[in-house]
Design a protein around this nucleic acid. Structure first.
Lengths: 209, 209
DNA sequence: ACGCTAGTCTTACGGCGTAAGAAACGTCAA
DNA sequence: TTGACGTTTCTTACGCCGTAAGACTAGCGT
């Protein structure tokens, strides 16, 4: 019987809290143990190694994205994209992980399968539908990385700072765009919406029903 | 005068070689020093810290992508996307870096500025044009990550392996798509082309000339 | 009361980034 | 030739990291 009442789930939950609070660079087995009032090596009873902790974190995030593929496919696919983005922005520290690690975590596969099946019912081939889902997913990850991604151990020189030090003579258009709001949350939102629309508008089944 | 004939450039070149050969996880100051026949601390004479090495690597990759923004904007923007992808695929180990680190390295800014200026000459606003460039760039990074991205210290369970262990009863569409070529180089290429086309087709200036 | 097992801790190893400063080298003036 | 000096390199050390090996301990069923 456990003396500290631990479990794989509690370890992962503590890891997520730690990462959200201090960033992914701060996630070490020793700190995670301390978080749970336990020595580092104790964690290895619940988790084979640190990589498994990272995988678990990804799976947690991915699993929270569930979309019911009913109605017009462009609509729920859009909702899917929006849901991924929301989840990623809720835990920006996980972004480098989600982006880098093979996305095929078990938690997300079921969702993917359901969407692919729904797409095939609307005239897409199996491969074609999955390519579409993949295209949307990779677009969202790419966009959100640019929006909120920061390197683990990197002090973030914010876009605002870079903007200050930019020579208007050398980069006139860039400076103008920065003044017009490039890099603001609204800018990201708008760019996301427009590009997503373009993507969904342009991707249609090759052999419609 | 140098006794080992080093320089910031040679350090970066050796770093790139090491990273290409053994992956980003293998890049340590000690190994990089050994690569150059020198102790680790010697590198700190040419580089302030390890982060600067990583930044330098990114800048090297980004700087190699140069596109002449002449002719129809959709065409050279497409060439830009293709060039980024080619460069990233040539050094896949750099992908996690490029994706994660603020993309505004000095090496790439000039290219961005030139493209934005060309777009404005074709009826885009300054902000609008940069959003377009950004959208394309983030799309390419996202796609290429999914195509070739592997985590630093992660042994890659290839898509092929995952495919084997997939229950056709549980994931029928997925399995069918995998059999139809999901995840092959051709699949990635095709998905890239189709999504890029959709993106460029759908993104047009709001206030045409 | 005793053993068993699940859970925890201790110790240790090799690696990491890098701070501080000592040491060796090449150059050039005296 | 010598000596001083700035440039480049090395030595040592500190505090972190992931984790292998194995010793301890708390609570259970008998």
């Amino acid at each position: 019987m456990p003396r500290a009442g631990l479990s794989r789930e509690k370890v992962l939950a503590a890891a997520l809290a730690l990462v959200d609070r201090e960033g992914i660079a701060a996630l070490s087995m020793r700190k995670l143990g301390a978080e749970l009032g336990v020595e580092a090596m104790t964690l290895y009873y619940y988790v084979p190694n640190k990589g498994a902790v990272l995988d678990g974190l990804i799976d947690m995030a991915v699993s929270r994205v569930t979309v019911e593929p009913v109605g017009p496919w462009r609509e729920w696919l859009r909702a899917f994209a929006v849901a991924i983005r929301r989840e990623l922005l809720a835990h920006p520290a996980l972004l480098p992980l989600v982006a880098t690690r093979p996305v095929m975590a078990p938690g997300g596969l079921a969702t993917v399968e359901r969407m692919a099946a729904a797409l095939r019912a609307e005239g897409f081939g199996a491969l074609e539908g999955l390519q579409l889902v993949n295209a949307v997913a990779t677009f969202v990850v790419g966009h959100t990385l640019a929006e909120a991604g920061r390197t683990p151990g990197h002090d973030d020189p914010d876009v605002a700072d870079v903007m200050e030090g930019l020579d208007p003579g050398e980069y006139p258009v860039l400076v103008e765009a920065l003044r017009a709001g490039l890099g603001t949350p609204e800018d990201h939102q708008e760019r996301f919406d427009r590009a997503l629309d373009a993507l969904l508008r342009g991707l249609a089944p090759r052999t419609p029903l």
